[in-house]
């Protein structure tokens, strides 16, 4: 055996010399792909005063079901007081290849940060 297997990574079938003696065909439809319910991203406000935070995703047929599923899946331990869901296909993301042009310019604008300003210690509440 030359392949290294890890926890949560048990290799693919067909490798190795032992074969299962109970393999049988299971009814996988040939047109199997594309039946998943739409994918939704879930955002949860964990308590009043905080922003909604991305928690993960799930499948649901519509917004209402997505909110309910989010309640069942992501707030089993009282993690939230408010839920947003948005269908994943509606999320537009910036291109990571452009990260340099988008974010690096902010690097040399130290004057945007409060610590840039050297003020006397006597000055309070600023």
């Amino acid at each position: 055996m030359t392949t290294k297997y890890y926890y949560g990574d048990f290799g693919e079938s067909g490798s190795g010399e032992i074969t299962a003696n109970n393999k049988k065909n299971v009814g996988i439809h040939s047109d199997a792909a594309g039946h998943d319910w739409p994918l939704w991203e879930v955002f949860i406000r964990s308590k009043q005063g905080l922003d909604h935070k991305h928690m993960g995703s799930l499948h649901a047929t519509d917004a209402q079901m997505a909110i309910e599923n989010a309640r069942d899946v992501y707030t089993r331990r009282m993690e939230g007081v408010s839920i947003w869901v948005v269908e994943s296909k509606h999320i537009h993301a910036s291109n990571p290849d452009e990260a340099e042009s988008l974010y690096d310019p902010a690097n040399d604008k130290a004057y945007r940060h409060p610590t840039f300003y050297d003020l006397p210690d006597e000055l309070k509440h600023m």
């Binding site: 190795g16 074969t19 299962a20």
Partner: peptide, 11 residues
Amino acid sequence: WNVVKGNGPCN
């Protein structure tokens, strides 16, 4: 290896 390959008691 047998259980991995599908020969476990409950596979």
